[in-house]
Design a protein around this nucleic acid. Structure first.
Lengths: 217, 217, 217, 217
DNA sequence: AATGAATGAGGATTCATTCAT
DNA sequence: TATGAATGAATCCTCATTCAT
């Protein structure tokens, strides 16, 4: 969708533009992002952005697509086919948090995509990303039930959704002041969460969710 | 915070303004909401809004505060002190879904508040609302443990957060196309969710979450 | 087509805006006319124009319609039903030249409408104006033939067209440097045409055209 | 006026550039013609145009000059010194229509040149072309009078101008929707004019104009 | 208190022209 | 010589806010 010109410029520049655009959209949202300011921030002329993209919308969609791909490969890029649901949950939360630390902007954009205004531009794109995770979790839960390591009475779909809900809210807490405050409120964390805090809570969340899955016996 | 003038107009008018403003902000987001269009849809003159509110920001904050209050009283207004955590979860999900159906605009605004752009204006306001729910859930969980109806090994705070995560995502699915698509993806619901679908999934979610709490016995 | 606001402002202002807009479009053409400069020239703020008109196009169309109406009433407003073709030609050329002197901008806009670029916006509008003149001339020619004061072998339609061709080119010469130079070239007028020159040539043209119509006797 | 470079490129390319530039200016007018789009349609790089011409203006002037030369040679290139005014009128209308069919773009440019915006760039150029026709018609009219085949009382200059007025308007009708509609309105032609229609009207026009010249017998 | 015309800073986009390769 | 990426002034239009009535 971007213009050919985008492929004819140095990779470093292309990446810088995408990075700064993602950061800008994440910081201020689509509507409040100013193309002139964005260009300045990228170190290029206002008109140059329009050599690469038809419009602000196209740039936004491209940034989202890029983030989605980066996210997918960061979270699920190196899973082991042999893992079970417990290992997958563990991996998902760890790699997810890692990705959110490296690229908080994409998590913000993900949250924006769920909010109002530009949903229509990106929802399909992002739902595609959800599908990857949904399929993975559902598959592993089914295997776990078959293997007798997961409670037989669990509704696989619903359980996958519930697990992912907390995953999403954890990542949200890493990039959104509101969701961070909410999480600290629930978890009685008085001060801004340190990386250490996050790791601890991530581990506890993993363990608690895992404990929900285990057969009662 | 609004001007005194707001109290000198007919209640019907005041409510209409708040309702339409909430709808407008919910539909398009803060930045993309046009004060002129908003005035038109309220049936009042552009200038009149500025007789009641200092600025667009103040109006937005007031709408949020209003939504927060409506939400709190809708969800927790008529709880019974004698209920246990199972009854509270049941009540929260039921009244929450009911509220989201009656006032989807406030859920949208809540989600926006968690996204970028205008976080700073409303986060404290909305976190206050979270606190009410957090305290309630944590209290009941503690009581449940004491009463022997909840697993003793549960981390009360984390459990409350996890429960509420799914609550938030369920309500989000009712007002955001993106989160609806996500939920349908997880739950294998091929078509737009009917009220019936929502009720069914709400019940299943309640039961699954409740099952996580029960002692293994 | 303009917004209601246009009718809610003082007549003097409304007329000033229309006048200046017509002058601006006439001077520079549609594409080269700058809305900001136009506003300045009208003594109003840039945004104000957009309180009256949806867009530059709408303003342009409105100016054209206005010019067309002014032109029609100026040229054919006070004809006498009893006149014959000779009197009508005389009247048309006289009132046409008078109108072109009072409102050269509308003649320029007429010529632009025949040129490239914005034809589609105004052609129907302006052809409507032509129709008035065409019908008038054709009617009178037919009457003249019936009354025996016009050559019987004349093709009425074609004759009307030929008469009007020179009418158009005469008015064009009054507002367009190019068509003035062309006319002076043909008529051996070395210097810029004075009002006197124009009157003389108008009279000669009238007489020559009239002489073409007379029966050979 | 163009740079020397223009002469160092293959003739085919040079002609293609001129042709496409003429078409582009004719289609959209000077101001609305986009140099980037023009380069694309010429099949050359944007920068290359500036290797041949200093600026858009210079290119435009060059295109006009080229059109003027083509027009002159097309219309008057192969006249016979022995022809009289009747033959010249006949020839002028025939070759003019033929030229307008082959190169409508130059007629459009001619009309634009008479309108606003870029008059100053080309008027002298184009008036030069008019002079050729004016001189020819006036000469032949004078000869006609001397030879007794033209009414002695005619004002030679004015007659030449009147003849040419209809010539201009006929060609205009071939390239401008507005002037075509106007002509159809006058001549009661309900549908778009076919080549056949045009030929018929051209013949009638020639004959009618010629009839105006003939001595009363 | 209500109105809506007026304002002008700001924002997305265009485009003639330049210049490094 | 040819190319096309880069530039930034220019342009259309928006919109929160003001203020005279």
């Amino acid at each position: 969708m971007p213009k050919d010109t985008l492929n004819n410029i140095p990779q470093e520049k292309r990446e810088r533009i995408l990075r700064e655009a993602a950061l800008a959209f994440a910081e201020r949202g689509y509507a409040a992002t100013d193309m002139a300011a964005l260009a300045r921030r990228c170190g290029i002329a206002k008109g140059s952005i329009y050599n690469y993209f038809e419009s602000k919308e196209e740039l936004y969609v491209y940034v989202c697509r890029d983030g989605m791909e980066k996210s997918r490969s960061a979270v699920w890029g190196d899973t082991d086919e042999g893992w079970n649901i417990y290992q997958d949950i563990d991996h998902m939360f760890r790699s997810g948090v890692e990705f959110a630390r490296a690229h908080p902007e994409f998590i913000s954009i993900y949250l924006n995509a769920g909010s109002t205004g530009v949903q229509h531009l990106t929802q399909d794109l992002i739902v595609e990303l959800e599908k990857r995770t949904a399929d993975q979790l559902k598959l592993r839960l089914r295997q776990g039930i078959n293997d007798g390591v997961v409670r037989k009475d669990l509704d696989v779909n619903l359980t996958a959704w519930i697990i992912n809900n907390s995953y999403v809210m954890l990542l949200a807490a890493l990039v959104s002041r509101h969701f961070e405050l909410r999480m600290r409120e629930y978890l009685d964390i008085p001060n801004a969460m340190s990386a250490e805090d996050v790791s601890v809570q991530r581990e506890r969340t993993i363990q608690l969710l895992q404990s929900f899955l285990r057969p009662k016996s």
